[in-house]
Design a binder for these strands. Structure first.
Lengths: 218, 218
DNA sequence: ACCAAACCCGTACACATGCTACATTTTGCG
DNA sequence: CGCAAAATGTAGCATGTGTACGGGTTTGGT
């Protein structure tokens, strides 16, 4: 009897195994591609398990339910890809080099991860219906990311990188909007020139923010 | 014997009944809201039939298959709502009053049809995966709408409404992008101010296009 | 080495799906 | 009116779904 008085059960709770972490990310990766190609409702746990030569029950053992899997996938995608569709975590970058150049770089690197972008795009749209399981998640995400970007713009203003006249809130919402919109066009038709579109946004909205104006666009 | 020689069967093909047209649109309407809340793969024919106190088989009688239903729904939504998410049919309006004011008006009126917008948003994202049944449909849609908008911008230039220096193609893609993006934010969180965002786009990208500059935005 | 927990699997259940016969009623032209 | 086509309905099929349960195997702390 270890616990002498309390009624708490002497549950010897053990942590996960060593290789569990790897399985965890394996499942997350597979789930990401499945949800990204079939959507949340369209993608099945069995699809994911088949893609891993794994049992269905294993993946529900790690993540108790389908929705919890989705949440984990979203969290991970949001962190690793941090881009349009409400995902910004590059505040350090913004502070150092300014929102404009940080954004342009992020746009460029994200061109190599279409699956994650597609996932966020599909789920953002799917979850816009209030009954969708992930509705609250995306509401919070967009709110916080918009606020974070606005703060970054304000910081740019404080550093004198962009004109103090501009409205950081308006800039934030507009930047996210064109980012998301261009990304959608690019996902549908990869011949879309995302970089050009994003550069145009900055040239139009914050011409003083870009390092050198190759303003041969318009 | 009406047909004397040909081997054609004397099939007395009759047209649809009188009330069939109404049923047709009833089904389309229900299907629209169902697909708009659950997506294409998530929405079921039975959901639609239940919502109409109708039999499942009736709706497959009118539209042979689920995908054909979707196509009809998309076509109808595209025509009636004509807006972001690649739907422009207001070329007359554009020619008469210019792209900017026509767009702003369309943005305003579309605020009252969230279901159709949500439908187009969800399906545009869903269909970005090449295997999606509606992929081709959306590729064509975006292509043609972007071209149409670019033409409208070029017409505005010819009429002297906007500066000839601007690139109609770039403007077209960017306008659609911010339109789609803002609409997504608005669908997720209705407190988003779409009108302000759209006005900002024109003030930044084509300041000479708006009738009077209430440029108190930034 | 022991043993309980973590892991993994097979099976099964209750339900939902798109679609297909087949039967029945309703409609509208001849 | 009559009759065939349209419209609607009932039942069912084959498949797929998320989740629950029980029984194995592996792991790692004691």
């Amino acid at each position: 009897m270890v616990c002498t008085v309390t009624t708490a059960k002497p549950v010897r709770v053990r942590g996960p195994y060593a290789k569990s972490a790897q399985r965890w990310t394996e499942i997350l990766e597979a789930a990401t591609t499945v949800f990204a190609t079939h959507g949340y409702r369209g993608g099945s746990l069995r699809d994911i398990s088949r893609q891993l030569n794994l049992s269905l029950t294993s993946i529900v053992h790690h993540f108790g339910t389908k929705y919890e899997l989705l949440e984990a996938v979203l969290e991970r995608a949001d962190k690793t890809v941090g881009t349009g569709f409400a995902a910004f975590d590059f505040e350090a970058d913004c502070a150092e080099r300014g929102v404009a150049v940080a954004t342009m770089e992020r746009v460029r690197t994200n061109l190599e991860r279409p699956e994650l972008l597609r996932l966020l795009a599909i789920l953002a749209a799917e979850s816009s219906a209030p009954e969708h399981p992930a509705h609250g998640w995306f509401v919070n995400r967009y709110r916080s990311k918009r606020a974070a970007l606005a703060e970054a713009f304000a910081f740019d203003q404080a550093k004198g990188r962009i004109d103090a006249v501009r409205d950081p809130e308006l800039l934030s919402g507009s930047l996210i909007a064109t980012w998301d919109g261009l990304q959608l066009q690019w996902l549908i038709d990869p011949s879309t020139d995302m970089e050009r579109g994003m550069r145009a946004f900055f040239e139009w909205a914050i011409p003083e923010a870009l390092p050198r104006g190759d303003e041969a666009t318009s």
